[in-house]
């Protein structure tokens, strides 16, 4: 194998979130329109590494992915060892807005997957003028649970093994084995209770059926992309959500599941490139007007 250094660069950002010092890890590549990527529950920003190595994307977009506190290489807050982690809409929103403001990103596009796809709907509804557009991957305003999250955090079950085994069924069978297992690896690595804490947000504190109708897509366009194999956020959930948002565009992606950007990068780019091109064209048109 020939040695080669990827264009991805990683750094740490220090900022206060909810009054607590926080150290966030982020990676980026490219230049141009800021594209902030939000990982799924119980995972980290590595899920977006393929986008960061795609020259067709990084030519026009500065692709940035940060690990939420407690995730990936972001440090958990001091005192974490006596706390139960529970993500909320308020904390998640503060982390994203705080990160974007700290990096002085101008109307960034935010693309999130799963719980990241959920929160972008709230961002568009509550803070639309701050963002250039949102892309929800495997996103809906609400969806039905499919297992009891109490299993995720108990001493007599290996949390990493269980999390990976649970979500393995959400990966479409057509993707390359290499990327299926890399996707699952990040679930195997997550800290104890973190996946469960994220799902507190996903299941108990993010029913957005009451607010997605308020999104003004003239101010903040909304794009929704969902894999046909996703039975967590079902295609029907996404299509129902899109119907409630005037001007939202939704596409169901073939041969993809719940982790499109990491489980099958080649297939995903067929769907995300047209969206990014639309965003770029609108951005250029807005700049001229």
């Amino acid at each position: 194998m020939t040695a080669g250094i990827e264009p991805i660069v990683g750094r740490y950002l220090r900022l206060a979130l909810d009054g607590r010092p926080t150290r966030l890890y982020f990676e980026e590549a490219g230049q141009g329109i800021p594209l902030v990527c939000l990982h799924t529950a119980g995972a980290d920003g590595r899920q977006f590494r393929h986008l960061m190595c795609d020259e067709e994307i990084t030519r026009d977009f500065r692709v940035i992915a940060f690990d939420l506190p407690w995730h990936g290489k972001s440090t958990p807050p001091a005192g974490f060892h006596v706390e139960d982690y529970k993500l909320t809409t308020a904390a998640y929103t503060q982390a994203i807005r705080g990160f974007c403001q700290a990096l002085d990103l101008q109307r960034p596009v935010v693309m999130g997957c799963s719980m990241g796809g959920r929160i972008v709907l709230h961002l568009a509804a509550a803070h639309g003028p701050e963002f250039g557009a949102v892309i929800g991957l495997e996103a809906a305003d609400h969806q039905q649970p499919w297992y009891d999250t109490a299993w995720l955090n108990r001493a007599d079950v290996n949390g990493g093994e269980l999390a990976a085994a649970l979500v393995s069924g959400l990966v479409a069978p057509q993707g390359p084995d290499e990327f299926r297992w890399e996707t699952l690896w990040s679930y195997m690595q997550s800290g104890p209770g973190v996946f469960q804490g994220d799902l507190h947000f996903y299941r108990a504190d993010s029913d957005y059926r009451d607010r997605v109708g308020r999104i003004d897509t003239q101010v903040c366009p909304v794009y929704l992309l969902t894999g046909e194999y996703d039975f967590s956020c079902e295609p029907a959930d996404t299509l129902r959500t899109a119907e409630r948002i005037a001007g939202a565009e939704a596409v169901i992606m073939r041969e993809l599941g719940h982790f499109p950007m990491s489980e099958n990068p080649a297939q995903f780019r067929r769907y995300v490139l047209p969206v990014l091109n639309k965003i770029k064209a609108k951005r250029e048109a807005d700049a001229k007007s």
Partner: peptide, 23 residues
């Protein structure tokens, strides 16, 4: 493609002592 899809869509059931199954 997954046992939990069966249960979510009402095509399957998992019951009994689930600890060894989940572990």
């Amino acid at each position: 493609c997954d046992l939990f899809a069966f249960t979510k869509f009402g095509r399957g059931w998992i019951e009994g002592d689930l600890h060894p199954f989940m572990a």
